[in-house]
């Protein structure tokens, strides 16, 4: 019985990893023609929210880390991009988990905080690797876009929750 649970969890995590990789790939293939670099919807956040609510922090971190590693080396620029995406993912997941644990906020506020933290994590890496002034100029716009995209992905995740009947993944 234990073994069966393990295989089920492994399969679900693998499926969700590939789903979030597809989301990431679509976003990197369709670059938005915006005057600010680095703005994207963050559709993979739907998978993260789903796992935070239905699995736990460990599963969400594992799937995110696997996605970051695979997409950075398959479709991206390698280690440099891995540092970027991982910093954003970890900061946003831990932050969303802590806010969720208080039990006082809806998925919209949690996801908005996650979007802001995701971009804040990336800005921090950019700040330490390519320098200060230019990054400061982009920070408000990127944090704002993180908030807006977080709200959009929250609405998507809520739609998924409404039809999902699979129970907890543990």
């Amino acid at each position: 019985m234990r073994n069966r649970d393990y295989i089920r969890r492994l399969t679900v995590y693998a499926l969700l990893t590939s789903l979030s990789m597809i989301f990431s790939y679509i976003e990197s293939a369709v670059a938005l023609p915006l005057p600010v670099p680095g703005i994207k919807l963050g559709l993979a956040n739907i998978v993260s929210l789903f796992l935070l609510y239905n699995g736990g922090l460990a599963g969400a971190l594992a799937v995110s880390a696997a996605r970051c590693a695979l997409t950075s080396f398959l479709f991206g620029t390698g280690l440099w991009q891995l540092a970027f995406s991982l910093s954003g993912a970890v900061l946003s997941l831990v932050g969303m988990y802590l806010i969720m644990k208080t039990g006082r906020f809806s998925i919209f506020l949690i996801s908005m905080a996650g979007g802001i933290l995701h971009n804040a994590g990336q800005l921090l890496v950019a700040f330490f690797t390519i320098g200060g002034a230019a990054i400061g100029y982009y920070a408000p716009v990127l944090l704002l876009s993180g908030a807006v995209c977080g709200l959009i992905t929250a609405a998507c995740a809520r739609a998924v929750f409404k039809v999902y009947k699979g129970g907890r993944i543990e």
Binding site: Y53, F105, S106, I107, F108, L109, M112, I116, L144, A147, V148, L151, R158, F161, K162
Partner: peptide, 18 residues
């Protein structure tokens, strides 16, 4: 509770942050 829309209190926070 986890599927709910943001309550009024949160909408205020969200608009303030934006």
């Amino acid at each position: 509770a986890e599927k709910r829309l943001p309550p009024k209190r949160e909408i205020v926070i969200i608009i303030a942050v934006l």
